[in-house]
Design a protein around this nucleic acid. Structure first.
Length: 401
DNA sequence: TCTGGGGTCCTAGGACCC
DNA sequence: TCTGGGGTCCTAGGACCC
């Protein structure tokens, strides 16, 4: 989708149409997640702080994002995709791959499918998208970025080498700033040069991904489109949040930690996974210094208080050097939780209580019932931004309000 | 009144076991 | 009077994606 969140907002509120708007994650310390093309024309970019955006574009309209709108729209759009092929892989909330190899005989061609999809998305949601058609995922993603907004770009097998010859390596999905710099030091600037580089030279410098890099330079990508439900099991579940103000008070820090532990635990329980490793992440007031530590328990858990205690245990091994700007907890080393009753009565009771609490919250909203120490608990809600790993269903459907 | 949040994958080094 | 090798698990840190 083009400028997805901003487009959805402009569609929902006609007063915003044709104007420079920026969607932000929350009211506190937040950044611009998406801006409209009108705002981009003035230099507003994703990741900017609000004041930076306003400096670039004084008439910029700030809209606090409404994630429900975006997840709903994204889910519906992916349903449209599945009318044309079951092989749909969501890459993020606003990008998907479709393998239409087996649909061509029904719909004629990839191009005709692309036009049908564009028309339906515009008709149903009033927004535009850019589509890339190519022999594989790497090239399709590349093609989709070539014309915006409302683009349609085709890279045929015959076009591949001509397209890649002078393309900067940084345009490839998977080559970030650091990798680009390292490749530049080897005098590699274009995909053409990357594709011609000796594999041995690349593996010597980059190890196992050297081979993959050369292939990318040649436009080779054999990775399949993984359709919904066929994805690998999720490997970690976590939440982190920048606090509305930096915290030094241990009581307040613990309170926020408990909140995070409950967010992580309830999500793990909802999707029936439990984990053995708890990771605590702290970012200090100066923004740049931070640390993360993890600990592994003797057995798997998805109970919020276990997670909280583990995180607290890590915190107690550290002397905080500065006030805390951000706290994060994640749970990994996951396995699917098979239903089994704990041995001891106390543990069974705890499980029952947790279940009852989760059931109420499932019906009336997250944290409607929660730990007493989290009440009244409004002052540090943090901001909520949709992560790109979001999926229409399952555990990656992060419940953000 | 500065700078979000959720993930995955890879590397490297150490502990531990047989 | 010197001491192997294979494997797993754990921790920490960094790059990358949107």
């Amino acid at each position: 989708m083009n400028a997805f969140f901003a487009s959805v907002e402009q569609q929902a509120n006609p007063e915003l149409q044709g104007k420079p708007i920026a969607v932000v994650g929350g009211h506190g310390r937040t950044v611009i997640t998406t801006s409209s093309y009108e705002a981009r024309a003035k230099g507003v970019k994703t990741g900017m702080a609000v004041w930076e955006g306003k400096r670039a574009c004084p008439e910029l309209i700030i809209v606090v994002g409404d994630n429900k709108k975006y997840t709903y729209t994204s889910t519906r759009i992916n349903e449209i995709f599945r009318d044309y092929t079951p092989e749909v892989e969501a890459f993020s909330i606003d990008e998907s791959w479709l393998d239409v190899t087996h649909s061509l005989s029904i719909f004629g061609s990839a191009v005709s499918i692309a036009y049908l999809i564009k028309a339906r998305i515009r008709h149903s949601f009033g927004i535009t998208c850019s589509i890339g058609i190519a022999p594989n995922k790497l090239l399709a993603k590349l093609a989709s970025d070539m014309q915006k907004p409302d683009g349609l770009t085709i890279i045929t097998p015959e076009d591949v080498s001509r397209t890649l010859e002078r393309l900067p390596i940084g345009d490839l999905c998977g080559v970030g700033k650091k990798m680009q710099k390292h490749l530049n030091m080897l005098s590699i600037y274009t995909c053409g040069e990357l594709g011609r580089c000796e594999e041995e030279r690349l593996t010597r410098k980059f190890g196992i991904i050297g081979k993959r890099l050369k292939e990318m330079g040649q436009g080779i990508d054999n990775s399949p489109v993984i359709q919904f439900g066929e994805e690998d099991d999720v490997k970690s579940v976590g939440h982190s949040s920048t606090l509305e103000r930096d915290l030094s008070d241990p009581v307040e820090i613990r309170r926020f930690l408990l909140r995070l532990a409950e967010m992580v635990g309830s999500r793990a329980r909802r999707y029936n996974v439990s984990g053995k490793t708890i990771h605590l992440y702290v970012r200090y007031a100066d923004f740049y210094s931070s640390w993360g530590k993890q600990t592994t328990l003797k057995s798997h858990t998805n109970q919020s208080d276990d997670i909280y205690r583990a995180a607290l245990g890590i915190l107690h091994t550290v002397e905080l050097e500065q006030p805390v700007r951000l706290l994060g907890i994640s749970l990994s080393n996951l396995k699917h939780q098979d239903e089994q009753l704990p041995l001891f009565v106390e543990d069974r009771k705890k499980l029952e209580a947790t279940k009852a609490m989760d059931a109420v919250n499932a019906r009336f909203g997250d944290m409607v019932v929660t730990y007493g120490s989290l009440l009244p608990g409004k002052e540090q809600s943090g901001s909520h931004v949709i992560p790109p790993s979001w999926r229409p269903d399952g555990i990656k459907n992060v419940d953000v309000k």
